[in-house]
Design a binder for these strands. Structure first.
Lengths: 140, 140
DNA sequence: GTCAGTGCAAACCCTTTGCAGAAAG
DNA sequence: CTTTCTGCAAAGGGTTTGCACTGAC
């Protein structure tokens, strides 16, 4: 098995990926990128910090790095819950289910989901992106 | 001019409205309801607190009351920005533009906006609602 | 009179900041 | 060597909590 995903976690490739995105590949950034780009996933800064647990990566660096990765387009912020920003390592256009009972965020397994009509934008503005969140709850 | 809106801000009607929603109409709750139900608007807890400025309504009561109103369906939380929950006094199904430059949230002036396809939900769940946020930025 | 609601201030939690030391090129 | 990055600890800002007082009914 030699998928794009397994190639991605190779550390020299990560280094190159970071360089390609104008990111100086420091030890901490490679470590973080390796973790979050290994597969498409949702995570908060706090969860990432815990995953890095034993490593020598500080809280400030985690926040700095996530901010940098968002700016460079390596991850995408998804904000659904007050006081909780999820980061999404899947940066392709896609949307989410948010389970209000469990707080779990999942991708909508349909890349064709779209609006039936794109409304006129306010004067002097341009579209930046669309976030569609379907809130679901456990059936009782 | 004697619209539903002006009727709504009448304090005895507000009292009845609260009772109809199983909310004990205390002085502070009436005051808050009067402010936020006067017209459809977006606001944060902090903004509401400022609007109540001179009145005798404490921070804790503002948060308690907003939480209660959400629970009872009088307002709807809209979460777009980390560390900022907007409350929307328009509880009808509708969606939002979010200007990433200004942080201003506006309703999409089209009540027909909908998905072109409703995806199958995860096993054992039911739909709770859909939030569509079109992020816009000022044209340069 | 009873129970729910309120105010105040302190606690909380996540995020950001400031600055000295360390690492990248 | 210079510039950028990191770690630490402290500050910041919005939200929640604990508890005594007040108000609704």
């Amino acid at each position: 098995m030699n998928t794009a995903t397994t190639v991605l976690v190779d550390s020299s490739n990560i280094t190159q990926l970071l360089r390609d995105n104008d990111i100086t590949p420091t030890q901490q950034r490679v470590e973080i990128a390796q973790l979050i780009l290994a597969r498409h996933q949702h995570f908060s800064a706090d969860e990432l910090l815990n995953q890095l647990g034993h490593c020598n990566v500080s809280k400030a660096t985690v926040y700095n790095t996530l901010g940098l990765f968002v700016e460079k387009g390596l991850v995408r912020p998804v904000i659904i819950d007050p006081n909780k920003v999820f980061y999404d390592s899947n940066i392709h256009e896609h949307h989410h289910f948010y389970n209000v009972d469990t707080g779990i965020l999942t991708d909508i397994p349909c890349d064709k989901l779209a609006l039936d009509y794109f409304p006129p934008l306010p004067e002097g503005t341009q579209a930046e992106g669309v976030d569609i969140i379907i809130r679901i709850r456990n059936r009782v």
